[in-house]
Simulated scan of single mutants.
Amino acid sequence: MTKRKVAALAAIGCLMMAATAWADEAPARPLVTDPVYLGPARLVDIGGRRLNLYCRGRGSPAVIFDAGANDTTIAWALVQPAISKTHMTCSYDRAGLGFSDASNRPGTSANDVDDIHKALQVAHIKPPYLLVGHSAGGMAVRVFADRYRDEVVGMVIVDGSHEDQVSRAKAREALEAAEMPALAHRDVPPDPHCVDAAKSGAIPKDSPAYTPCVGEMYPGVDQAITDKTFAVMAALKSQKAHASEDANFATVSADETRATRRDFGDMPIIMLTHAPRPAPKGIPQAMQDRRTMVWEQLHNEVAAMSTHGVNWIVPRSGHTINYDRPEIVIDAINLALAIATGQASQPKVTHDQP
């Protein structure tokens, strides 16, 4: 996960940093060594440009994975292989990110959906689809499910972004500043101007902007894959794509998501929410608890859009639940598939999944 603008945007950037406070408590993870992440898996022409699509497995419904902001197919390296044992699965790099070609369109949720839907058609990956989205990808899968309702049988949203999170965060911050005036004057790290830093073609490794703009990798990824991923993410193409997604997140993409339906009938919607975080130094626990309640309420609202909707609070996890607790994501996908195909009933609403 990139640390850039996390405070302001409340967990929308997520390039691969899974070094959370819960890492020591979570089970040991397998090393990610699949060479597919060293280059494009399949470049699918969607009309004059190509999208990197990584599909494996067989079986319907097909499971389609959308990563969070500034992230790529590797976001699902600990989840996709398990699901592909029983179902067709596809992850992809959004336009300009990873090994996908750049686009001349803004990085919005609707454009993301348009791209992946075209890619699935070209690649002959037929519906029905179960959609899985992490962070900002959680908004895009709702746009997809709304636009192609007859093709979608369920959604699993992993600590998903919400169209109102920025406005509610601002309201919460105003209240906090009134309670603790020092918060209104706290230092905010300057924007590292990532696109400018990459103007030579890529951000140099010795640039002070490199780590803030590129991020940090989950420690279980093979070094060769880490090096290749960072080289791709440091490129000007990727930095421009991320900047466009960032610029549109709270405006165009939020409006596109806000315009989607509020009733998905009995389509299973399983929300996964990261564990409550301890209060940072200098912040009263009551204030931190209020922050937790706001985030959980946003997810509860999405779960309430279905009679088969549920929000699971995932212990020992940070925002990157797909890295911290991939087994929970796998369980949620399998349960959503079982409900969608009539093999299981509605999930229990619980706030303490194992």
Rank of each mutant, 00 (worst) to 15 (best):
A202K: 10
V314F: 01
T89F: 08
T251D: 08
R56C: 09
T86A: 07
K85P: 05
T2M: 08
F264Y: 15
T229P: 01
T2S: 10
V36R: 14
V132F: 11
D45T: 13
L337I: 14
M217N: 06
M271R: 00
Q121A: 15
V329Q: 02
A82T: 13
D112N: 11
A340W: 00
V329M: 06
Y37N: 04
T20A: 03
K199I: 13
S60V: 10
E25S: 09
A234Q: 03
L9D: 14
G201V: 07
D263N: 15
D115A: 06
K240I: 08
A75M: 08
V310K: 00
M233V: 04
T72M: 11
L183N: 09
R142N: 08
S317A: 11
T211Q: 15
D115Q: 11
D222G: 06
I83E: 00
F249D: 13
V113T: 12
D289C: 05
I83A: 04
A275V: 07
A336T: 11
V221H: 07
A95Q: 13
A26D: 04
T273N: 07
G47Y: 15
L130D: 08
P127C: 03
T33C: 14
D159C: 05
T2L: 12
P35T: 08
N300P: 00
S161T: 06
R262V: 04
T211Y: 06
D101I: 07
R49P: 00
P204V: 11
G47N: 11
E216Y: 09
S103K: 13
A11F: 14
R290G: 14
E256R: 05
M305A: 02
H185I: 09
A336C: 05
A247C: 04
Y129D: 12
A136W: 02
D289S: 07
M305W: 11
A344F: 04
M88Y: 08
H117G: 06
G96F: 01
M293G: 03
R50S: 13
D289M: 11
M1V: 11
A338V: 08
H162L: 02
A259G: 13
T350Q: 09
K240V: 12
Q165C: 04
H308I: 00
T86N: 09
I339G: 01
A286G: 12
G107T: 06
L78V: 04
G318R: 00
E25Y: 02
A209R: 00
T2W: 10
D115W: 02
M233Y: 04
